[in-house]
Nucleic acid binder design. Structure first.
Length: 117
RNA sequence: AGGGGUAGAUGGGUGGUCGCAGGUGUAAGCCUGAGGAAAGUCCGGGCAUCAAAGGGCGGAAUGGUUCUUAACGGGAACCGGGGGUAACCCCAGGGAAAGUGCCACAGAAAAUAUACCGCCUCGCUUCUUGCGGGGUAAGGGUGAAAAGGUGAGGUAAGAGCUCACCAGCGCACGGGCGACCGGGCGGCUUGGUAAACCCCAUUCGAUGCAAGGCCAAAGUGGGUGCCGCCGAGAGGCGGUAUGGAUGGCCCGUCCAAAACCCGGGUAGGCCGCACAAGAUCCAGGGCAACCUGAAUCACCAGAGGAAUGAUCACUGUCCCGCUUCCGGCGGGAUACAGAACCCGGCUUACAGCCUACCCCUUUUU
């Protein structure tokens, strides 16, 4: 188990073109969309709309989500692209809160991935 | 001591652990990694492409003067006007006798002046008085603004009708590079609005790094005007001057026409891309903005659905409470905000703390 997040694990511009995303689950602030990729490993991307907050808040939320992914990689499934959409900004932007909500997001997801495989 | 004005600085620190991006290195590792505003995208430039980026019309911007600068709508000094006891601050600050338009409500009248009340006078009538004609902008009332202001003379009552001073206009003189200032003379006078159209002067080609250049999977070939005649067709001969580009339009200019010519270009990658109007410091010039010269520094952010993060410990600053001999303990606060080609400005946001100079008031001497 490694706690890294390299460039290959991030989605690039071409990965968004014509991709059919499947919405798996959703919490108060986030929603999770996944898509089977053609690699052996998992990848992640975070999207936040400009209307959600200013650049400082958006940066902080994205970094904390990436940090949570890095520390809990085992919760994600291999061979899938994960797109986390931030619908609105939580009141408390701390690592603990983001980790907890992301845990909830992934726990409610399980059914969908099993049916796809 | 209190209140105020101007200019500026700072934008928490140290260490550990887990990570990210770039550079370097065979590797281990080492080095570097957001801001004063990175923001708003409001101006100006560099750079790049567009057919030479040419002329005219249109359009846009600017608007006291002189400087400064790569350039500016920025900055400096000065002039004029306004505000403040003062330090100081604010001003799109050219033209209203080139023309057109507008000036709500109120008011008699809002621009070739006008007569509602009042004042004076004449006629008729008459007990008081009333009616009609004429003169009058001194007074009343309205308004943001009422046809120069104040005073004296003058008059039937009045009026730049006359005179003095003031304001404004014109003329020459003196001073200043200039905006303008000063005193003098003249005739006595022409409302405001140009961030209404407009006029004048000056400036501006367009588009922005998603500019643009190079390589290039996949997929796929493309172009060669029109008319007439001949010919089965391929094609040939002759004629016509058209088609396309110029990004608001026109002129002008350029490109293409018979046998072959050539690829263009998506995904993706590389470059553009950080040595630049560079930073620090010194000397000289200038009231200042700024300029000139010398020295030193250099891997010093370079991402791309977008790195610069997370967490722990100690600690700095400020506030509150408790305790109190220095002091200690507990709690809280620590802003605005995130590079996206790069610079020079402007504007806006900003917790706390600090510095310099200046002004006013009070007290003491």
């Amino acid at each position: 188990m490694n706690y890294t997040l390299t460039k290959n694990e991030r989605l690039k511009r071409g990965d968004f073109r014509g991709t059919q995303w499947t919405k798996c689950s959703e919490t108060k602030h986030f929603s999770l969309l996944i898509h089977k990729n053609r690699y052996e490993f998992k990848r992640i991307a975070v999207t936040i709309r400009k209307q959600v907050g200013d650049a400082v808040v958006r940066n902080r939320v994205r970094r904390l989500i990436k940090e949570s992914y890095r520390l809990h990689k085992d919760l994600f499934v291999e061979g899938y692209d994960n797109l986390i959409k931030v619908k609105r900004v939580p009141h408390k932007i701390f690592l603990k809160e983001i980790e907890d909500e992301l845990g909830n997001l992934l726990r409610t997801r399980k059914i969908h991935t099993s049916t796809r495989q």
